[in-house]
Amino acid sequence: MPKQSPVPDEVDKPFWDAANEDRLVVQNCIDCDRLQHPPVAKCPDCDPGTNLEWKEMSGRGRVYGYGVMYDCPVTILAEDQPFNIAVVELEEDPGIKMLSHLPGTPVDDVPVGAAVEVVFEVTPTTGQKVPEWRVVG
């Protein structure tokens, strides 16, 4: 599905740069030893909270849950309705969650709990890649 192209900013540029290299990275607070996503400028759990790094993830996870979009506000996605939006939790830390259209999975037939792996999808406007997830096995 053609998506809007995300425009990286100072904080999340490493996340999107890694996506363009087909790598999934997640921010980590070194002081808290805790992953953080979406990216932030400052760890919300510690002070000063600026001791942040980027950790490469395995790209594996599970489907936490989902909904099916029938009345999407985003123009570029309207023609593809209805479509799944699943919440994926990462293998390294189920607390870290990302959204996915689950390409290849029929609408409203989402296998909650199923294993997924990351793929990287090119967005049409700028060519920026976006992490997506496919059900495996």
């Binding site: 809007q4 192209s5 979406p38 979009m69 985003v74 406007t125």
Partner: peptide
């Protein structure tokens, strides 16, 4: 929502087309 690019927090939510009630629906 009408553009071809997305900035800010929407890069991690509305990029996938979420509507206001999506999170509640998922819950």
């Amino acid at each position: 929502a009408g553009g071809n690019t997305v900035t800010g927090p929407g890069k991690y939510s509305t990029l996938w087309g979420t509507v206001a009630c999506y999170t509640t629906a998922m819950q």
